[in-house]
């Protein structure tokens, strides 16, 4: 591990000034469960690390009239069903509980979770690739079992987004607050996780002088029930092979409103708009649900070893809706 300077700001203003002054060489430290891995494997070489853990303003869950605001350094273990303001967002608490291990959830932060680099085996094993600053994807014709099946024809990097919470947040109106010394902006989550394709090495639109300070989720429509489903080979300490989140409003057997997202299948959480359209405003039946899920995955394109993800994603979508609506299917 290369040496670095550790700074511990006492206020957000001071932290932002530190970022401003570090000329793009600083990294933000939340729980460290990702940053330390990146440094150890030489994927990151920050001269300066700015520890945000002591900034109380960045931590905790607050209700507001329009929804809930979660501080960026809030630990995943704090996003629990016992946290009253999060009770309308069951998919999020379920996704937070599905991350890693208890030890990781006690350290890792929501902001850090959204800023993770891909867990692609090639990137993490030191191969030259798009995400490490290169101009090729060694995984495409290699060990492709973890790669994306949706939207991959539009991206050079085929790694899937690793976050569980990001998938759950995608079925709510979620915005990420980014702050720099020169101001702040609120960016919708999907936009936050979609840097321009010409910038293949990056994972978010976060600028080097910016900090994620907050995740804001708008209150869902009354009666919304949500769920998150994760499929993994190992029962813990595994990223999703496929996952799905659903937020539904049911009314006398009718799906009045539905939002669906898939994880583990694309470079960012995948809004399942085709399936949403097939289900919205209709009576929810098992057959309709299955055909909606299949319709969503009709666009999937797979490589030599990742075709199994199609079936997993179809199953995960069905299961997320089934769990969200409880016994009413």
């Amino acid at each position: 591990m290369k040496p670095f300077k550790l700074l511990t700001p006492e206020s957000l203003t001071q932290a932002l000034a530190m970022f401003w002054g570090s000329e793009g060489k600083a990294a933000a430290l939340g729980g460290g469960t990702e940053l330390l891995n990146l440094i150890r494997t030489s994927l990151s070489d920050p001269g300066v690390i700015i520890d945000l853990k002591s900034l109380k303003r960045l931590r905790g869950v607050r209700s507001s009239r329009s929804g809930v605001a979660i501080g960026a350094t809030t630990q995943l273990s704090e996003l629990s069903p016992q946290c009253r303001p999060l009770q309308p967002f069951a998919a999020l608490t379920q996704a937070a509980a599905a991350v890693g291990t208890p030890q990781i959830r006690n350290r890792a932060t929501l902001g850090g979770n959204l800023c993770q680099r891909p867990r692609c085996l090639y990137l993490r094993s030191g191969f030259d690739c798009w995400k490490s600053g290169g101009t090729q994807c060694p995984a495409r014709h290699g060990e492709s079992s973890g790669l994306a099946i949706l939207g991959a024809e539009r991206t050079s990097c085929l790694a899937v987004h690793p976050s569980d919470p990001a998938v759950a947040l995608s079925v709510f109106d979620t915005r990420v607050k980014l702050v720099s010394a020169s101001g702040s902006r609120l960016v919708p989550l999907a936009q936050f996780l979609a840097p321009h394709e010409s910038d293949a090495g990056r994972d978010t639109v976060l600028r080097s002088d910016e900090l994620v300070t907050e995740v804001r989720i708008a209150s869902p429509r009354p009666g919304t029930r949500s769920a998150y489903v994760k499929v993994a080979d190992r029962a813990a300490f595994s990223f999703a092979l496929a996952s799905a989140a659903a937020a539904c409003v049911m009314d006398r057997g009718m799906l009045r409103h539905v939002r669906l997202a898939l994880g583990g299948v694309a470079g960012a959480p995948w809004r399942a708009r085709v399936a949403e359209e097939a289900l919205q405003g209709r009576k929810l039946t098992p057959a309709r649900l299955e055909s909606a899920a299949r319709a969503e995955l009709a666009a999937a394109r797979h490589l030599e070893r990742n075709g199994y993800k199609v079936d997993l994603a179809i199953g995960a979508l069905q299961e997320a809706v089934e769990r969200a609506v409880g016994g009413r299917l």
Binding site: R119, L121, G142, R234, A235, A236
Partner: peptide, 23 residues
Amino acid sequence: RDPGTGRQLNAGLLDYKIPTVLD
């Protein structure tokens, strides 16, 4: 491992999956 270079791709306890207590 990578079928081209022979380099191991899961040389760590995250990706080389031994069972956890939940398994």
